[in-house]
Design a protein around this nucleic acid. Structure first.
Lengths: 194, 194
DNA sequence: GTCTATACGCCGATAGAC
DNA sequence: GTCTATCGGCGTATAGAC
């Protein structure tokens, strides 16, 4: 609430320092506090710049969020390998503490879906990074629809994760959930029964 | 945007007319436009009352939403019957055009999860109406966790439904999705493989 | 092309007079 | 109970100084 001008941190590039500072502050605050609890003025204060500069550089709060949240190539590596284990590996990936930043970003994105621009951006990301690649490897009828339903499962898990009962923080609890939910995801990728 | 004082409609009771008018207007607007696109001033105008009355009667926007959105006993009937078909019946219920009002309400609730008070309310509703009842009927290990994961799947389906590919509006498209997603839900209720 | 300054209209929320 | 007045904060727009 009271923090000013984060001078530290790796800057993505030296080209446009203020735009980078804004982007970095926005990324941190959106991931930590969520979309609606983060104001443009908060971002500006943390970056040590004038609030109107945020608008000048990014156009609007929606665009700032959408531009800054991008987590491309996050899913891709986990769609490779044996198709019969993709469900389990996706669930494991989503819950892995080592990917905390991805999960926070994903959570912020899913929870900000009340704003249409954000929702459309989420849809685009999911199609590009998951549906297209996954459905291309799937066989059987309705492959594209099934891939969208896999994404719906992932969205649901992220949306609800921090209120899913106990054992959330223990490795064994996570492993059990990953196995259970992974099997449910797998049911859509390689159906066991028709 | 320009509508005033909806005088019509069934009033829930004659006890507190203004509170009821506010609740009814709020229900309609939240379901139609979502949480963040609906302002207290909008609700007041539609109910034909002063905006501060909304606050006086309901305390805050969060509380108004949460008080007014309540869709108790919506899920219950679909958790009865053969446990082996609950997955399919839940998915069918969620997609059924006949339950459009429930779906809009549920969608608004899920999408408003960026606000903590709303998120906690959603969690409470899901536990009361779904997790408690469903887990009581389930056997095997981790029944409660599995029931929470079923709710996560339902949340994901609602969250993503209006951008899941084509055929969304045809009865056959819905039936195929219900069968596919229902099988994935069922996988958590009565696991096919361990 | 940056950045500053000021301001607009709307928001959720509060205090207090009828 | 209801309404008037007002608050600080929000996202956003614009005019202009470096």
């Amino acid at each position: 609430m009271r923090d000013i001008a984060v001078s530290s941190g790796k800057s993505t590039s030296g080209a446009a320092p203020t735009a980078n500072a804004i982007a970095e502050s926005a990324r941190e605050l959106f991931a930590r506090d969520g979309y609606s609890a983060t104001s443009i003025r908060d971002v500006a204060r943390r970056a040590g710049v004038d609030p109107t500069l945020v608008m000048r550089h990014f156009g609007s709060k929606d665009e700032l969020f959408v531009r800054v949240i991008g987590f491309d190539e996050h899913f891709a590596p986990h769609l490779d390998g044996k198709l019969e284990t993709v469900g389990f590996r996706l669930a494991t990936y989503l819950l892995d503490p080592a990917h905390d930043e991805m999960r926070r970003t994903f959570t912020a994105l899913v929870r900000a879906a009340d704003h249409e621009a954000v929702r459309l951006d989420l849809q685009g990301i999911i199609r590009r990074l998951l549906v297209d690649k996954l459905s291309a490897r799937m066989s059987g009828p309705d492959a594209v629809v099934r891939a969208w339903l896999v994404s719906a499962q992932m969205v649901g898990l992220i949306h609800s994760w921090d209120q899913v009962g106990t054992d959330r923080t223990t490795p064994d609890g996570r492993r059990r959930v990953a196995k259970l939910y992974g099997a449910a995801i797998q049911q859509l990728i390689t159906p066991a029964v028709s």
